[in-house]
Nucleic acid binder design. Structure first.
Lengths: 349, 349
DNA sequence: CCAAGTCATTAAAACGTGTCAACCCCGGCA
DNA sequence: TGCCGGGGTTGACACGTTTTAATGACTTGG
């Protein structure tokens, strides 16, 4: 043993960190590079004593495996892509939390991307993910065509649709029944005596919006009410500001009995403007949102909403994805569909 | 020109997508692999005609560059890591939005990681980032020691501290003055007549919490009030649930005049329990949070808070990071410090 | 004591790209 | 005509790892 910090007990000079590769580790431990690789990837194949020596060398030299080289040679890496619609929406960040937790547990890494609802940006970012050779992609599609998503799968990238059901049996999907959710919401509004309902909704290209609308109509039909009782109030984004604009437009004409917002961010924006205008919720208008984000319960008037198992959505989707990645042969595609749950609070009482 | 979709006009069979590399493109375009690489990396060096032919081949074959090989050979890739404290906190998701926007604009990709405030998890995830050979890391440190962060930098990874000031001139940091923020908040509370103040705060390992506390004490001192007027109410997490627990504890004893929460999530939790217990805000207690997240304005009692330029924080930090990555030599480290802003709403009026 | 295994280790060949020195072609100049 | 120069292009090697077939040492059963 020497006390010099630059020399090992075998007299091999220690390379500067960053340039230390499997070879240096091998030399330091007195084995071949192949053995070091075995220690990293199939520890059971190497004798306990040598393994210990190699691990010691790894620690001593501060070796960290070069993921690029590994991915290149092995043909597959340990990263997955996550493409969401909107990072500012707690719904998606809750999903992302679930994703990140699972991914981190299994030693993977997650490449984050946001399409912002734009098909073009989605496509551009998917290209970046493809270049990075992600093993799989979790995606809430912005444009419905499934064009470039299909291409991804052809390239051998596992894809799980996130918050997006699919009838096709050749892929996994995890979603919540938005039609049922819309029906729950509007059914509840009707039960509270509402007869005219405004539906504040994002662009029709978003499946979530149209599905919730279909559910709303179904509830009306079930109650024997003219579907015309549902009036669309389209907005261009799904955030609180858009909700404020929607409310301003609503205040221009005669108020409906009830307002159903396609998500809670919209509802919070609507609520704010209504209260400022002196409209009482729920006595003048009843209001319900969707997603049941954490903040809805704490709103000026606690918001009724439709709850989705958001965090679980992210977890399950990621588990499906990684299962497919880790064992593509023995993997059976699943289409998971959760049922939403009505949460009644002051805004509809 | 032939009509077959499997053959090109030159009769070269088209390889299946996924296995098409720079070589296949080269053969298809009738050039050497080196030229294709030049088209990708230094287009100006190749004649317009050949460049067009290569680009055509790329499009035709659906070639996607293998990022791993590229990174391996070039020694550096086009990904950066983002390590946040808590994905469920809108503060960090706003920051993440700024990061993602810039990163996406510049053709980079972002590896997302969350430490959840745990130094151990932070270290584990940093290792994954190092393996992926990220070019840089944006990090809000969970453990203050700067131990493994230093190691990262030694490895040649650019590091920008996010929401974390540093006195050291050898690195970039972007932060908001938390001491000033704490002073603003408590100064305002004192101005409203408060003489006893509870400070609901997370673990002392979080710099944000201790800095805001220092600011609070400074405000007390400036007003000539005994610092003992500030009572700590420590909680183990920085979310709404922890806020609820803190409020429950507060309700056990005599209520203070005012409550200062280390962030808005805590404040929203506190507010909820107070209202349920019949405590009136602001007449019985005044309440102020920190961060001014979007939802604070829409709370049951609109919440006073301390606003930070969150999205900008993410943008600027990323720009600094990428500038350093793209030109390490000509890069001058900067320590950016934003000033927070008091936002007064009903909860303190 | 030998044949047949078993187990641990090794050497060498890939993986797909970037880089760099060498090379070729063509026009201009002496 | 010969030479020079420079833009365009090429070929081959290197990056750090995984993998496979082969080698060697050691055990076991006959």
């Amino acid at each position: 043993m020497t006390t010099s910090s630059d020399e090992t007990r075998t007299g091999v000079p220690r390379p500067r960190p960053g340039s230390v590769g499997i070879k240096e580790v091998a030399r330091y431990a007195g084995v071949s590079p192949g053995t070091v690789s075995n220690v990293l990837n199939r520890p059971e194949r190497v004798a306990a004593a040598t393994r210990a020596r190699v691990e010691e060398a790894i620690r001593e030299l501060g070796f960290v495996r070069n993921g690029s080289a590994s991915t290149l040679r092995a043909g597959q890496g340990r990263t997955v892509g996550l493409m969401v619609l909107d990072l500012a929406n707690p719904f998606f960040t809750d999903v992302a939390r679930g994703v990140e937790d699972v991914v981190s547990e299994r030693g993977y890494a997650v490449l984050l991307s946001s399409s912002g609802g734009s098909g073009e940006r989605e496509q551009r970012n998917l290209l970046v993910l493809a270049e990075q050779r992600v093993r799989g992609v979790l995606i809430t599609p912005a444009a419905d065509d499934g064009e470039h998503i299909g291409r991804l799968r052809e390239r051998g990238v596992a894809v799980v649709l996130l918050d997006h059901p699919t009838p096709q049996a050749n892929q996994c999907s995890v979603a919540v029944d938005d039609v049922a959710g819309g029906e729950l919401a509007v059914g509840h509004l009707l039960g509270q005596g509402a007869r005219s309902i405004a539906y504040v909704t994002g662009p029709p290209s978003l499946r979530q919006c149209t599905d919730r609308r279909r559910g709303a109509l179904r509830a009306l039909r079930a109650a024997g009410i003219d579907p015309a009782a549902l009036r669309d109030v389209p907005v261009s984004a799904m955030n609180a500001r858009a909700g404020q604009e929607a409310a301003a437009r609503l205040l221009d004409g005669p108020l409906p009995d009830a307002i159903f917002c396609a998500n809670d961010l919209l509802a919070l924006g609507v609520l704010r403007v209504l209260l400022q205008a002196g409209v009482k919720v729920p006595s003048d208008v009843v209001l319900i949102g969707y997603d049941d984000i954490e903040f809805s319960a704490a709103a000026a008037v606690p918001l009724s909403s439709v709850r989705q198992p958001t965090y679980q959505l992210g977890r399950i989707a990621t588990e499906l994805l990684l299962d497919e990645c880790d064992d593509p042969a023995g993997h059976a595609h699943q289409q998971v569909m959760f049922q939403p749950e009505l949460v009644v609070r002051e805004s509809t009482r």
